[in-house]
Design a protein around this nucleic acid. Structure first.
Length: 557
DNA sequence: TGATCCCGCCATGGG
DNA sequence: CCCATGGCGGGATCA
């Protein structure tokens, strides 16, 4: 699958992201597997004025071009790519994360109206929050896991899973009866029974992200934001995580106003779903797929974002208990005097579970069943913990469930100060390396360079450059072999981690960490390569092999 | 013809 | 009335 690096093509999933396919054809010389080259492709394919502007502004050293500029292009995803490129995933809270609507509109060369749509979706994920008129604060993905956890919970409470199932079934029935006509009535009755007792869903707030600029919040609808949250919920409660457009639209209509569900309403909802989906796609949270049925293919989207999330996550790379505390504190804080949105009851529940969680961890010093980081690695300055992620298909490691899980556990450990580092190993690069040209090192994003660049290797030759992009299995295996954690190499490596019960049943539940432990994750979605996580104490690494340290510990970040 | 989504009219609510 | 915001649907484009 050219565009679908995850090989999502399953029995009834067929990837058909025409945009990517098209772009790839147009600019075939670009290595399509790097984030930056993707961006370049999008830029190349964008409308002429934007493209020219882009050329003036920055790169395009290779002078590629020659794309038919008359074709209609997807501005929306492109816009967001550009937009996201300007803001870090995990912004430093101390720095200026202010976003001015006018500036963005000007820079991206679009009308304000378009920015509102993007912002609304981002706001629904709490990646931004409105700070004032014309102004937003950028949060990046720092709150994403937390938001998703809440959305999932709310989605479960609303029984979206069952609803979707019902609607699917209904559509299926329709398909087999050749008269779609007669069903109208039955459908109406059923729908009503489904929705009855279901309260209207409000915007799901996040503790700590208060809505300022009250004047703006008074507006009652905010449908795009609410709709976006609902849409995400649908993914989070369904399994497999594939949601077809029509099912989503039907559910979203159902809740709006019970009465009218005519064709127009449906069409409008679908339009809006595309708006939302484009943003989510740019965020790499969903991908376009098709579900195949007797009657033909239906457009659908598949969730490719994080699969599991801890109830509350502190800021990655800077784990601090205080943020966890704050989280709970905020959740319990007395209801604000004037709040623009309803605080969902599940927040309270969640806060309690967080507290319980913390209590357990802090007050059970040596329960073997409930191990925490601190109990296995004695606290000292030497005992930093190094985390390796392998085979992570998610482009954004920091939002990977395994990563977040570890961070969460680490951040709730009282005794241990944990330094977490990570190495990105992108299988999409590795798997697609046949024949494709390596991209120059300059095309790598700063993030990638920081994460992957081994100082020992001078990225001059294409081979080495390519290695920069796919150091994953080789170097990773090499490292772990040196550490004596695995044996063999290559795709079928045998991981000989200590076979403890804790390891076997590591998730869900507390991670069992020992001086030397590896935890394996079995992916829910069809990921071809097993995902694994290794946690090793720094001390152990130092004593293991000298070779390892420069490659993986010192140089990689 | 269905999928996709650009474009911008116009409603809304505050000042 | 002006402004910021954003709901909404016509209709263009493409496969």
């Amino acid at each position: 699958c050219v565009n679908c690096y995850r090989m999502t093509c399953g029995v009834n999933l067929h990837c058909s992201n025409k945009a990517v396919l098209t772009y790839r054809r147009e600019v075939g010389s670009v290595d399509p597997w790097t984030p930056t080259s993707n961006l370049k492709m999008l830029i190349s394919a964008a409308s002429p004025d934007i493209r020219n502007r882009e050329k003036e502004l920055c790169m395009d050293a290779d002078g590629r071009g020659g794309v038919d500029s008359t074709q209609r292009v997807e501005i929306n995803p492109f816009l967001l790519y550009k937009f996201l490129a300007r803001y870090p995933d995990c912004p430093n809270p101390g720095l200026n994360n202010d976003i001015c609507l006018d500036d963005v509109a000007t820079e991206l060369n679009v009308e304000r109206r378009r920015i509102y749509d993007i912002m609304n979706v981002l706001e629904s994920l709490h990646m931004v929050s409105r700070s004032a008129k014309n102004r937003y604060a950028w949060h990046g993905r720092t709150k994403l896991a937390q938001t998703l956890a809440i959305l999932k919970q709310v989605g479960e409470e609303h029984k979206y899973g069952q609803q979707m199932q019902q609607i699917r079934q209904r559509l299926l029935d329709k398909e087999f009866d050749f008269d779609g006509e007669e069903k109208e009535n039955a459908e109406e009755v059923e729908l009503e029974s489904t929705e009855q007792g279901q309260k209207e869903l409000f915007f799901v707030e996040l503790p700590g992200v208060e809505f300022k600029a009250a004047s703006v919040n008074s507006r009652k609808d905010k449908s795009l934001r609410v709709m976006s949250q609902k849409f995400v919920m649908l993914f989070l409660v369904s399994s497999p995580r594939v949601v077809s457009l029509d099912v989503a639209a039907k559910i979203l209509i159902g809740e709006d106003q019970g009465a009218d569900r005519d064709k127009n309403k449906f069409k409008t909802k679908v339009r809006r779903l595309y708006d939302i989906a484009n943003v989510l796609r740019s965020l790499k949270l969903i991908e376009k797929v098709h579900v195949t049925e007797e009657r033909g293919k239906k457009p659908a989207f598949e969730w490719v974002g994080p699969e599991e999330f801890p109830p509350c996550v502190s800021t990655p790379l800077v784990p601090s208990r205080s943020s966890v505390e704050n989280c709970a504190k905020n959740l319990f804080s007395s209801p604000g005097t004037k709040r623009g949105f309803t605080r969902h009851p599940s927040l309270i529940k969640m806060a309690k579970s967080i507290q319980d969680d913390r209590r357990k961890i802090n007050s059970a010093p040596s329960s073997p069943a409930k191990t925490s980081l601190g109990q296995h690695i004695k606290p000292s300055s030497e005992d930093n913990v190094v985390l390796f992620l392998k085979g992570v298909m998610t482009p954004n490691v920091k939002s990977h469930p395994a990563f977040l899980q570890v961070i969460h556990r680490a951040s709730t450990s009282r005794q241990l100060r944990v330094t977490v580092r990570y190495m990105l190993t992108s299988d999409r690069v590795t798997l697609s390396s046949t024949g494709s040209k390596a991209s120059p090192a300059q095309e790598m994003t700063p993030t990638n360079i920081r994460l992957l660049k081994p100082a020992a290797a001078s990225p001059n030759t294409t081979q080495q450059a390519h290695q920069l992009h796919s150091p994953s299995p080789a170097i990773f295996n090499f490292t772990l072999q040196n550490l004596g954690l695995i044996s063999g190499s290559g795709p079928g490596s045998c991981f000989s981690a200590p076979q403890t019960p804790e390891c076997a049943n590591a998730l869900p539940g507390p991670l069992a960490l020992q001086q030397r432990s590896m935890v394996f994750f079995k992916p829910v979605s069809p990921v071809p390569i097993q995902q694994s996580v290794a946690l090793i104490s720094m001390q152990q690494v130092r004593s293991a092999t000298i070779n390892v340290q420069p490659v993986c510990l010192t140089r990689f970040w």
